[in-house]
Design a protein around this nucleic acid. Structure first.
Length: 276
DNA sequence: TTCCATGTTCCGCA
DNA sequence: TTGCGGAACATGGA
């Protein structure tokens, strides 16, 4: 479950469970998720080390060790961390187990194997090399900076929000949530919004992500006004109780409420297939 | 059986 | 040249 809020909750989880224990072994169950490192190298780099802290940038979780390299965890579409005291227990699809002296272990679970585990020199270098934009919750990013990074874009607001080179951390689900909270149709074009409207999107983005983190992404603790809990076709809109609909935008499924967010994108003519 | 799924990357088109 | 959208990737669940 890996957009910014889930990764932040995972970072907190890692820090609450796994710090300051010596790594006894890195148990690689499926090397497909290892990138630019093989199982032996990963084990050699971490064995005898301790994890001393986690740092997040967008959807990336950097884990600092008491040695040179940092461990980088990227969850892909289906990853999470699970800590076990019992050496025999594991998460459902553990791809890499970080075993600590004493028997506990932290599982990097990644059912769909689109996640990544790698060793990197440090967060700053990696973020720069990947061309990632500022973290969506970074203090260095303000409303004006956000608005400026969007001005001149030709595509949809949804794909701009999901573009990690503009802003790191927002994915498909939270882009839908932000559009819902702002009552904007999923196909709304950036160019159809003025600076004031884009500034409002920034404010909503911040409050939405922070609320999700505060709720620790527990479905029952998320604000009841969130669409996230009703993200399926035919579900009932938490605001007007209308039917939630699905539409394809930039190759991704977008869920929205046609009644709250309009049947057609703002600034565009309503669907006209033309007479045949 | 078919469709869909919260990720990134690569390719072709305008 | 640059930005954008679509497909591909791996795998399992509805």
């Amino acid at each position: 479950m890996p957009e910014l809020p889930e990764v932040e909750v995972s970072r907190q989880y890692l820090e609450a469970t796994s710090l300051h224990q010596e790594v006894a072994e890195v148990d690689v169950r499926d090397a497909y998720v290892l990138k630019d490192v093989d199982p032996d190298e990963l084990d050699a780099a971490l064995r005898g080390r301790k994890l001393i802290g986690g740092r997040r940038h967008g959807k990336l979780l950097f884990v600092q060790t008491d040695g040179d390299p940092w461990l980088l965890l990227h969850f892909g579409m289906s990853g999470f961390l699970e800590y076990h005291e019992d050496p025999e227990e594991t998460s459902p699809y553990p791809r890499v187990l970080f075993r600590f002296r004493g028997g506990a272990h932290l599982d990097f679970d990644n059912r769909r194997k689109l996640g990544q585990v790698r060793l990197v020199e440090g967060p700053e270098d990696y973020v720069r090399a990947k061309g990632l934009g500022p973290d969506a919750l970074s203090k260095g990013l303000d409303r004006q900076g956000f608005v400026e990074s969007l001005l001149g874009r030709r595509g949809t607001l949804k794909s701009a929000l999901m573009n990690q080179e503009i802003l790191a951390g927002v994915g498909n689900e939270f882009s839908d949530e932000i559009l819902f909270q702002r009552r904007l149709h999923p196909r709304t074009k950036v160019a159809s919004l003025d600076e004031k409207a884009l500034g409002a999107v920034f404010d909503t983005l911040r409050t939405t992500l922070n609320s999700a983190i505060d709720a620790r992404m527990q479905p029952e603790q998320l604000p009841s006004r969130f669409l996230l809990r009703h993200r399926s076709e035919g579900a009932s809109c938490p605001r007007c109780e209308g039917d939630v609909a699905r539409v394809e935008v930039s190759g991704r499924g977008a869920y929205y409420c046609p009644s709250c967010q309009g049947d057609a994108p703002v600034g565009e003519a309503s669907a006209a297939d033309g007479p045949s």
